[in-house]
Write a protein that binds this DNA or RNA. Structure first.
Lengths: 181, 181
DNA sequence: TTTAACTTTCAATAATTACTGAACGCTTAG
DNA sequence: CTAAGCGTTCAGTAATTATTGAAAGTTAAA
């Protein structure tokens, strides 16, 4: 596994971004490597390419599987496992997006629902609850929206994009239609 | 600064989520505390409420200012600085969203643009570039979309949400609109 | 000025997170 | 049955990130 400079560059960049995207540097590099390679790679190839230990690869693969980002291939007569991205770029992005929603939004939504049900017993708590309600509403909106967007194919999304420079046109249109009915 | 259990609970939760949202535990708590309190707080109050050092508060505030999440108040005849959230919940979420886009997407977009301009000089690089092109297109779409959504007010967004359970209806609307014009 | 009331900075240290490599486990070919 | 080839685990260690607290900086009242 000798990476060309251009490919290595990409892989290293994925490493840098890894932590921002929810995993760590090494795992970011693994994703980059798997995505950029046309053919599935063995754990040893990954370890060699990224210059990390065999055990680290094993842990990384495990993590990526929990995100559903990799799938395993087998070659007849070969006992090694070959790893490849689990779907297209689009699929992977969707999975990351979904998983992050689960980690970043859902727990807060749950907490807020509980807190809001409780009655406030001081002016501070009154205000606090109003704020929590706002956050709750916001997160719920975001959640619904992300579910909607995930359902669209890239083509549909592109189609929506072409509406023009502002989605607010759609809203105006909607309002007009509602007035008529 | 004695936090009621309910409020403390919320603040601690913000701490847990802090790292997922792009900052660290302490800074998450600070945001939670400021948002949940109707009145601006001094650095000392924050330090006391969260049981952290005065210096840590100073650094946290600095970080939050770089995200544009807090603003400073002054009380006449009082030299202390009072900190408060910089806008509504909605404003704050927008700022976080925007800042994260800058950190998580923009650098990759820049890298990919450069890489794609380069010519491939091997079959592997050919494939690699196709993949990079896919990622590039995806990220560009996401970027454009997030810009669109950010332009909407909460009301407009709610309005859009109520269009129905599927955004594809919006696409239908778009088609109708295009036919008329 | 001086001093008091604040804020900021940063080197030292603590806490957390990631990585290695040796040991173990499983499977299959010989 | 044994050994070789692979994958997994995890205690120990390395690397990174966060926090403290003391010193230095800033401002304004006296």
């Amino acid at each position: 596994m000798n990476l060309s400079p251009k490919i290595e560059n990409f892989v290293l960049h994925c490493g840098e971004m890894g932590s921002r995207w929810g995993f760590n540097r090494t795992i970011g590099q693994m994703v980059g490597l798997l995505v950029i390679n046309e053919h599935p790679l063995t754990a040893n190839q990954i370890a060699e390419a990224l210059k990390i230990s065999r055990g680290n690869v094993s842990m990384g693969i495990k993590e990526l599987q929990s995100w559903q980002l990799v799938k395993v291939h087998h070659v007849p007569g070969d006992r090694k496992e070959y790893y490849a991205p689990n779907g297209t770029i689009w699929d992977l992005a969707n999975k990351v997006f979904e998983e992050r929603r689960k980690r970043e939004i859902d727990p807060t939504l749950t907490l807020l629902r509980d807190q809001i049900l409780d009655s406030a017993n001081s002016p501070e708590e009154k205000y606090a609850q109003e704020q929590m309600q706002s956050i709750h509403d916001l997160l719920e909106t975001v959640t619904k929206w992300s579910a909607e967007l995930q359902r669209l194919t890239p083509d549909q999304l592109q189609s929506l994009m072409k509406l023009g420079s502002s989605v607010s046109k759609v809203i105006d249109l909607k309002d007009k239609l509602l007035k008529k009915s």
